[in-house]
């Protein structure tokens, strides 16, 4: 088996095993409805995580995405509700704001050689601050167009439903796969993650690539904010706290190396679905207190990671030296 695709494959297999385990334990666990709900309920996380994949592949990290989601949802809600814009006018503006925000972070990272972790941490504070300045209260959205978006979709047999959120997610996924594996930019992103120095010496336009990566990530976070505000029909400055960590976890569960250079877009999707499945499993359990839920999620993620390492190591054989440590 190919060493590169192994972690993704393992994630896929473990996802299926988890699904089977759930189906054995609970009736109706593996129904199309539950599975499609995984997509609907996690669409906003998945969109963010797909953006995060590119950032992590390039050896960076983007902590601002949760805040950008909050900021976009508040901006979106306030444009529609307070300023009376049509959603179709508001959406492009929100996306553009997200893109500019990401580009600015990318410029700071590239031009001034600042560390992504810290720049995006500052970005996280800044975006959250902007959202609070726009409105400290939750803004409910009432607009017929938003309702139309929420009602749009296809019914599938087995009481399954593919809604607009799922459709957007699928579109983003296809775009991401194309970008990562069929464009030059994709190659540059992997190259940066492999070794930024060598990449520059090989003629990779490092600046342009870096800026595109963070622009992409923030734009997707803004898109996700739009999806989220449609889904909840509101915008609130305190949503999405800690979401960046979920996104990072999903990316890493999907087999992407946090140090960059190795990983797949498909892996991230599987990672999000796995995390969603763990949540579903807990909710099927019913009466768990909130703290047991946290402990459960933690231990399941942990077991998953250990399994994944274990299987990958078993299949490739251990290589000498701590070359893969960290």
């Amino acid at each position: 088996m190919n060493r590169r695709t192994l972690p993704v494959t393992v994630t896929g297999i473990l996802f299926v095993l988890l699904l089977i385990a759930g189906a054995v334990q609970f009736t109706g666990f593996a129904s199309p409805r539950v599975i499609l709900n995984l997509f609907t309920d996690n669409a906003f996380l998945a969109i963010i995580a797909l953006g995060m994949t590119f950032v992590i592949l390039s050896g960076g990290i983007d902590l601002s995405v949760g805040s950008v989601l909050a900021f976009s949802s508040v901006l979106c809600a306030s444009l529609i509700q307070v300023h009376g814009w049509h959603p179709l006018q508001a959406f492009p503006v929100v996306l553009l704001a997200g893109a500019c925000f990401g580009a600015a972070m990318g410029i700071f990272i590239h031009v001034y050689k600042l560390q992504p972790f810290i720049v995006t941490l500052a970005g996280m504070f800044f975006a959250r601050g902007l959202a609070t300045v726009i409105s400290e209260q939750s803004i409910p959205i009432e607009h017929s167009f938003i309702d139309a978006i929420n009602n749009f979709g296809f019914a599938l047999p087995g009481r399954g439903w593919i809604g607009s959120a799922t459709l957007i997610l699928i579109a983003v996924f296809i775009f991401g796969t194309w970008l990562a594996h069929f464009t030059r930019l994709g190659g540059y992103i992997y190259a940066l993650g492999g070794n930024a120095n060598s990449a520059a010496l090989l003629g990779v336009p490092v600046g342009l690539t870096t800026i595109s990566i963070y622009t992409l990530s923030s734009t997707l976070a803004a898109l996700s904010g739009i999806v989220y505000s449609c889904y909840t029909a509101s915008g609130y400055a305190l949503t999405g706290i800690g979401l960046e960590l979920d996104a990072i976890a999903a990316v890493v569960i999907g087999g992407t190396l946090i140090s960059g250079g190795y990983g797949y877009v498909l892996g991230t999707l599987l990672g999000v679905l796995t995390m969603g499945l763990i949540q579903t499993w807990i909710s099927f359990h019913g009466s768990l207190s909130s703290w047991w839920t946290k402990i459960f999620i933690g231990s399941l993620v942990l077991m998953f990671m250990i399994f994944q390492r274990w299987i990958s190591q078993g299949l490739t054989g251990r290589r000498h030296g701590p070359d893969r440590i960290n």
Partner: peptide
């Protein structure tokens, strides 16, 4: 100064891939 994480072929043609 090549990229350890890309395939040999990709290393050879990075930045000038046939499209």
């Amino acid at each position: 100064n090549l990229l350890p994480n890309l395939s040999v072929a990709h290393n050879l043609y990075l930045g000038r891939e046939p499209r």
